[in-house]
Design a protein around this nucleic acid. Structure first.
Lengths: 144, 144
DNA sequence: GGCAACTGAATGCAAGTGCATCTATATGAC
DNA sequence: GTCATATAGATGCACTTGCATTCAGTTGCC
């Protein structure tokens, strides 16, 4: 005999994927409509902006954003190709590099934020009260 | 002045994506470890199994699973190449086709289910009580 | 019937992803 | 110091995805 999830489990799983997909699609669509890069770029730019002058090692970005090593490597390569980040040598470790935000990178993140923010307002904040958002957050935290 | 989401909105968005990604990754990892096809295949096989002998038009599958037209077209092509579904002409519409489940397709779906079910038990049911699952489902329904 | 507009489905091409592997450097045992 | 092992990051290859377009067949209008 095998375990079988009850209806409430399946229902939650379905809603979870749909909700995440709907919000994500809404955010991406708004960014694209505004001629801005995809959401994945924002996360990297934001981490680097917080890291400041010192920058971050690719492995740090990888760990913070939960990206696979090769995916992160290529994402950073695209950002570099677009001039939004710069690579430098890592002091004390000849294997590694340090990635820092460029001026264009900072500007791009700042352009993305209002669009991203508007999307979250419309797709999340407008649909649940603050108390409901807090409740949902607490429940979802247990799944991650 | 632009609107800016408050902390509870951003926190929910972060948790939502992480929770969905975590559960999805867990399910996919279990399927792969068992040598089974990815989750996307399951959904199609399940819809076709429910549709029975009559099968479904690709556009119907597309609508039920919220897939883009081209993605659905190629997904069905892969399933056909794997021998899990069969294509036939659509009566009364020379443009269309009808997709039906093969014996192998039915068997594959049945092999996938226990793995999928175990994953949902471990990743969702084991972490939230039935009442919590119901509450989370109701909240997430408002986002989708 | 003939033709424009539409619909169902497939596909060429560019870009992204996963996996395994590779290169270069670093570290630890001896 | 030397060698095996481990770590940081990049990359070749196959596969998947997104976008735009194409192809075939249908529908409505005259």
């Amino acid at each position: 005999m095998s375990v079988t999830p009850d209806d409430s489990t399946v229902a939650l799983w379905v809603r979870l994927t749909r909700a995440a997909a709907a919000v994500l699609a809404g955010v991406e669509a708004r960014l694209k409509a505004a001629g801005l890069p995809p959401l994945g770029w924002y996360d990297v730019l934001w981490e680097l902006e917080q890291a400041g002058e010192a920058g971050l090692r690719p492995m740090d970005v990888e760990a913070r954003l939960l990206l696979p090593q090769y995916g992160n490597s290529r994402l950073l390569a695209r950002l570099r190709a677009a001039g939004l980040v710069a690579f430098g040598p890592a002091k004390g470790d000849g294997r590694g590099v340090v990635v820092t935000l460029t001026g264009d990178g900072r500007a791009t993140r700042q352009q993305m934020w209002p669009v991203y923010a508007e999307a979250l307002e419309a797709l999340v904040a407008a649909r649940l009260t603050p108390a409901e958002r807090a409740a949902a957050t607490a429940l979802l935290a247990r799944l991650g």
